[in-house]
Design a protein around this nucleic acid. Structure first.
Length: 422
RNA sequence: GGAGACGUCGCAUAGUCUGGUCUAGUGCGCCACCCUGCUAAGGUGGUAACGGGGCAACCCGUUCGCGGGUUCAAAUCCCGCCGUCUCCGCCA
């Protein structure tokens, strides 16, 4: 939720943000009008309520006929109070509904849609397979030969977009995620294993029940949602709290399964484990003061790049365009690794600066010199199942084996090469 | 699944039976000042959040787990929900 004061003081900034995202600006005026209605109706209610309370005190002290007369008068007042309270509540709900439809204010992201990103840098050079006289095999070919990935049985057991990681595949994922947890721990993050089922309030607070509600699994009988990322649980972690940021940002590294319905992506990335309904992820999450958020965003990006370096992948960093930002994000950087089999870049990490947007709805504040202040939240990826795709493809060798990147070897008992089993 | 107890301003607790004197008391902690040659102890005052108004001092409203209801008036009475704990049952 955006800051109502910003809307009031500088509606043009909100309009500009909406325009950059390619979204409707009329909601801004509607929200302004609702805010004015809320304030006036609230003022009406409050003055009546004050009067009622004052008279209540007289009633308490009076007795006999005097009391009966007073009660007669206060009855009428009580009805008025009730009516005005109802009006004020309606105005409040109306404003809330409108505010909820305004995504976070864009901060520095390029305007436009999905294709209008800016490439900030490119790191490493994609292998020249042609020069090596090789046609790169895709991750599923490799994974099946290594006995690492089984999508056939995944589909048999759970349907399309499900898979088994088997043998060395399972070990490789654990190695990657453990390396991510270790990197995060060394950087001062608190490792966390989080709930993957959350309440509607938690899900709504993180902004995932807006436009992207279709992406989220919902358990009807229990009214719980399966999270698409541990960001959800970590954002809710300090919900309704006043936290202490005097010693710097609070940083958590969440390890969890993630669930996505992938509605609307039929026919896209159907092969292998690029786009699946369930995967694992280590996610960085940071609570910090709003004035520190931009610098923290850079730090998260830096840790992501350290992780990519550890698995030795060529990648580029892009500054996502406004129209491609999530509801909660003010700015987003993605790291995309080169995918040899498709000769394109594939998103491996994504770090968002949500400024105060999530924290406002979740009611997370910090104490400052002048009272409390809504904090900023940020998140970023340190490792996911999808990384295996890029690791297998980029480190494949002519004989079908796969070189284990240096950074993962300690997590695989020193194993240097994954050998085909057939 | 069954039964019971509980949920109050950072923590602990009073208040709920018997609605108005609750502007929610007290202790601890914390902050400021005072006193005391150190330390300990003591004294005085302050110490929730959110919203609205005001240059400001300050004023008003909301919040006693959440949501409804009764009433002129609800921390207090009624209903529903959530959470915590204890016991029983069932299952691993």
């Amino acid at each position: 939720m955006i800051d109502i004061r910003l809307l009031r003081d500088n509606p043009d900034a909100v309009r500009a943000s909406q325009t950059a995202r390619g979204e409707d600006t009329s909601v801004v005026d509607a929200a302004l009008a609702a805010e004015a209605r809320r304030r006036s109706s609230l003022a009406d209610f409050e003055s009546l309520r004050a009067e009622q309370k004052a008279m209540g005190k007289q009633v308490a002290q009076a007795s006999g006929e005097e009391k009966a007369a007073l009660i007669g008068r206060t009855k009428e007042l009580a009805d008025q109070v009730k009516a005005h309270q109802a009006t004020a509540n309606e105005a409040e709900a109306e404003l809330d509904e409108l505010l909820y439809r305004i995504p976070n204010i864009v901060e520095g992201a390029p305007a436009g849609g999905e294709d209008d990103f800016i490439t900030l840098k490119t790191v490493g050079t994609p292998r020249d397979f042609a020069a090596e006289g090789l046609t790169p095999r895709d991750h599923l070919d490799l994974g099946e030969a290594l006995g690492a990935i089984d999508t056939q049985r995944g589909a048999k057991v759970s349907g399309s977009r499900f898979y088994f990681l088997t043998g060395v595949g399972a070990r490789l994922e654990l190695a990657l995620l453990n390396a991510a947890v270790d990197l995060a721990t060394a950087a001062g993050f608190t490792p966390m294993i989080t709930p993957t089922l959350v309440t509607p309030d938690t899900m709504r607070g993180t902004g995932f029940l807006g436009e992207h509600a279709d992406e989220v699994y919902h358990l009807e009988r229990d009214d719980l949602y399966l999270v698409g990322t541990s960001e959800v649980a970590l954002a809710g972690y300090h919900g309704d709290e006043i936290i202490d940021l005097s010693a710097g940002p609070k940083r958590y590294a969440g390890w969890s399964a993630c669930y996505r319905r992938e509605a609307g992506s039929h026919g896209k990335d159907v092969r292998g484990i690029i786009r699946v309904h369930q995967f694992h992820k280590v996610e960085m999450f940071s609570y910090c003061r709003p004035e520190d958020a931009e610098a923290e965003h850079q730090r998260l990006l830096d840790w992501e790049e350290q992780m990519l370096a550890a698995v030795d992948l060529p990648y580029r960093v892009i500054d996502t365009a406004a129209g491609d930002l999530g509801t909660s994000a003010a700015r987003k950087f993605d790291c995309e690794a080169w995918l040899p089999s498709q000769e394109r870049y594939l998103e491996l990490t994504s770090t968002s600066n949500c400024t105060t947007f999530q924290a406002r709805r979740l009611n997370v504040r910090a104490r400052t010199e002048n009272g409390t202040q809504t904090v900023a939240t940020l998140n970023g990826t340190l490792g996911t199942t999808r990384w295996l795709v890029a690791i297998l493809e980029n480190h494949q060798q002519a004989d079908g084996s796969v070189r284990v990147p240096e950074g993962l070897r300690p997590y695989l008992g020193g194993l240097e090469v994954l050998e085909p089993v057939r």
